[in-house]
Amino acid sequence: MGVFKLGGMTLKSLFKKAPTRRYPYEKREPFERTRGQIDMIDIHDCIFCGLCQRKCPADSIVVDRNESRWEYFPYKCVACDSCVRSCPKHDLKMMQERPSITTNAKESRVYELTPEEKEEKARREAEKKAQAAAKAAAAKAAKEARAKEDVPES
């Protein structure tokens, strides 16, 4: 009878530590590489390029460049790690904790700049643009001037 042949092993298990755990009360330490969900490290470093959104196979990140807004849907995410790998600013991290049980699977986490920061950013961008435009205009003028100088000589 098979039951008796397995007896040795079964007897041993009687005295060993149980291989199972009383799960919700007793949780196992996650491994270092365990993938649970992602999180934003610092929204101020994000350049809102949208690469993470484009790489995501589960459509669980929505980036709005104009609003400076980054939104993440943990219950859509399949924890594949491709957004973390693709971020040019290394601004995303993989966390070991899985999202907790919910009744609202559409729940999301939003990170966005405060209105002041947005203004500041817009101002800086406008400044940069103005500078770039001025530079371009100067370059154009210089080129034209050079072209004018060149004409009589030829």
Binding site: R33, T34, D81, M94
Partner: peptide
Amino acid sequence: FEECTGGRVIFS
């Protein structure tokens, strides 16, 4: 599997 790749069933 979980130790090496981070997933138990789906490893990515």
